[in-house]
Nucleic acid binder design. Structure first.
Lengths: 96, 96
DNA sequence: ACCATAGGCAAGCGAACGCTTGCATGACAA
DNA sequence: TTGTCATGCAAGCGTTCGCTTGCCTATGGT
């Protein structure tokens, strides 16, 4: 899972899936090009999605000939738990 | 920085520095062996520390012929900020 | 002065990574 | 059925990674 985060294109895929959930492979390719300035081929993105799925960061559901992908940030908690990241000081109790 | 987290030995180093701050290179080597079951040479650990330092995850201070290393988890916030990890539900307001 | 200790620098090597290429599969439309 | 579209599988290739090897610097103890 840490290894899955090590590649910038994979991180861009996570960004893209966060902004717009349930994208197909071709949707992702287009948006990676237009919004992130990346030019990755279908096979490259497909392999990246495989890695992300193995890492548990992306869940996919098949419908007909389409495969939709969704972000799952749950595994990232392993990072914050492991090295005790304090939750961002956001004054959760509303004291002035 | 994501790349720095991709290696299990480097993550063990971060674990070790979290548990005991201000370790030297040789201290780290010994504790990696005894407590994490790893057998890394001095040069390997030294290179790992270099990567971690470049990533901003480890800060070092030189004193005489010793160099002490400290963990800095600040860069890890980039992860939680980027993918909006909600702070762990820990009831920060103390409601029953 | 001498030597051990703590650490640094750099070249080389095998393995893993990311990507391409080519072909195959399954679903839908005409 | 035939063709097209969305996706999958696998081999090959160049690059990067992690590690080793060998030598070097500098600090501190005797």
């Amino acid at each position: 899972m840490f290894r899955a985060l090590a590649d910038p294109t994979r991180r861009a895929i996570l960004d893209e899936l966060q902004e717009r959930s349930g994208q197909t492979l071709f949707e992702l390719i287009n948006r990676l090009v237009t919004r992130h300035g990346l030019s990755s081929t279908r096979q490259a993105v497909s392999q990246h999605l495989g890695v992300l799925e193995d890492a548990g960061l992306v869940r996919s559901r098949r419908e007909g000939r389409y495969k939709f992908h969704d972000l799952d940030t749950a595994p990232l908690r392993a990072i914050t738990d492991r090295w005790r990241i304090d939750p961002q000081e956001e004054d959760p109790c509303g004291s002035p």
